[in-house]
Nucleic acid binder design. Structure first.
Length: 421
RNA sequence: GGAGGCGUGGCAGAGAGGUCUAACGCGCUCGUCUUGAAAACGAGAGUCCUGCAAGGGACCGUGAGUUCGAAUCUCACCGCCUCCGCCA
């Protein structure tokens, strides 16, 4: 959510930002609506002021006839207030609806573009893996090692269902334990949040109303979160944070649930796109300062790059184009890992910053040194998702003899084992 | 799942239709006094909306309602506590 005052004072910037994100908005209409809102608000408040004044007169005045007269007068004023409040309510409802649709302004460094095809590579790391044998895809490799069971997964869960079995489970635990050490060493506080969450946190993070179809819903009206970013942002909702605590850095760990509505034809086989998975996520709250947000953004993205580098998996990093940005995102980097059999890079991580777009919706604030209240800034970046990471891991590290090399850094979490055979 | 009780400022806690501009206390900030501190004394202090300002409005868990007037009455929701049941 943007500040309405900012929108009114920077109409052209907001319009250009929406255009860059390929989002349709009618700023002119919103401004007119807001003027109307303020006008009626003023009228309602003036009337209320009168009622308050006369109310005191009614108490203090001793003349019973006058009292009755004043009460009668106020009765008509009350009718007037009621009518105006009704009108105000409908305007405010529409105003809120429109405000939720105004996208945050993308950074100047974000490239123009329609969708992920227009994202721009800004870095590559490692050599694309070469094989002196015919490599297999992750499905074949994992099946042959009984690391996964898709048939029974589909039988039990349905479309996109899977069981992880045997060594892949141990690999997941190794990755989680390693990631836990890696990120807590960088000052992150681990946190396991509730993943069944009320609507408010989805509104705050921006997954509702636009992305509601992609969420699973319970019969009690809560939703299953697709990322721990949702409850972790909700953690401080409505609170005033002590500035001394910034930057607040959390490493969330949770299952993630995604309906993948609207992507039924995509990645129908394998572990790339599944309905439920686990993810470690970096979530950061910091002071409301653009330079600090940018610095934190680079930092959390770099953390994940370093993590991938330590796993020795070739990757590249892209900067997402305007059309591939979420409503609240100012800028986003995706880290994509090399998947040999697909002969392309596949997304593993996404680092975004939001300025105060989310914290304004969550009402997360702090007092600066002058005593002024500010909305904090928020950022998040994937630390590591499982089992998607296994796709590129087993494909890149498969050996001619059919074994899979375990990355050096994971071995101590795998009982010293070097290969899965 | 059943029964009952309770949500008031940073904390604690009164207020039970109008004089609430929310008491008293603790804590906090500033000042006086002091070499410095403590104590004592004095003063001050929230958030949001609106307005150039003066000012006005809203906020007693949240939202509706009753009333000329609601922290106070009614309803719903959220949360906390106690007891019973169920489960681990």
């Amino acid at each position: 959510m943007l500040d309405i005052k900012f929108i009114k004072e920077n109409k052209e910037i907001v319009e250009a930002g929406a255009k860059k994100k390929h989002v349709e908005v009618d700023i002119e209409k919103l401004i007119k609506l807001d003027d109307e809102r303020l006008k009626i608000l003023k009228e309602v408040e003036d009337l209320r002021s009168e009622v308050n004044k006369v109310s005191n007169d009614i108490v203090r005045d001793q003349d019973p006839a006058l009292k009755i007269q004043l009460i009668e007068e106020m009765r008509t004023v009350k009718e007037e207030i009621k009518a105006k409040e009704e009108k105000l309510k409908t305007i405010v409802e529409e105003w809120q609806k429109m405000m939720l649709q105004i996208p945050n302004i993308p950074d100047i460094s974000v490239p123009e573009g329609k969708d992920d095809g227009d994202n721009v590579e800004i870095k590559t790391w490692g050599e694309k893996t070469k094989f002196n044998f015919e490599p297999k895809d992750h499905i074949e490799i994992m099946n042959s090692h009984k690391m996964v069971d898709f048939e029974r997964g589909i039988k039990v869960h349905g479309f996109r269902g899977y069981f992880l079995t045997g060594e892949s489970v141990k690999l997941c635990f190794a990755i989680w334990n390693y990631a836990m050490d890696f990120f807590t060493d960088k000052g992150f506080t681990p946190i396991i949040p509730p993943i069944i969450d009320r609507k408010e946190s989805f509104l705050g993070t921006g997954f509702i109303p636009q992305g509601e179809e992609d969420l699973y819903k319970t019969q009690d009206g809560e939703y299953l979160a697709g990322t721990s970013e949702v409850p972790i942002m909700g953690f401080y909702s409505g609170e005033i944070i002590d500035k001394k605590l910034f930057p607040l850095k959390y490493l969330g760990f949770s299952p993630c649930f995604r309906r993948e509505a609207g992507s039924h034809g995509k990645d129908t086989k394998g572990l790339i796109r599944v309905h439920e998975f686990y993810k470690m996520e970096q979530v950061v709250l910091c002071e409301a300062n653009h330079e600090i947000s940018v610095k934190m953004h680079e930092e959390i993205n770099r953390n994940t790059e370093e993590f991938i580098e330590s796993l020795e998996i070739p990757y590249h990093t892209v900067i997402n184009c305007g059309g591939d940005l979420g409503l609240g995102q100012v800028k986003k980097y995706d880290i994509e890992l090399w998947v040999p059999k697909e002969n392309k890079y596949r997304e593993i991580s996404s680092a975004s910053y939001f300025h105060d777009f989310q914290t304004r919706r969550f009402n997360i604030r702090y007092k600066d040194e002058t005593g002024k209240m500010n909305y904090a800034h928020s950022l998040n970046c994937t630390a590591i998702p499982t089992p998607r990471i296994l796709v590129s891991m087993v494909e890149n590290f498969q050996q001619a003899d059919g074994t899979i090399k375990i990355p050096e850094v994971l071995r101590k979490y795998m009982g010293g084992k070097e290969f899965i055979s």
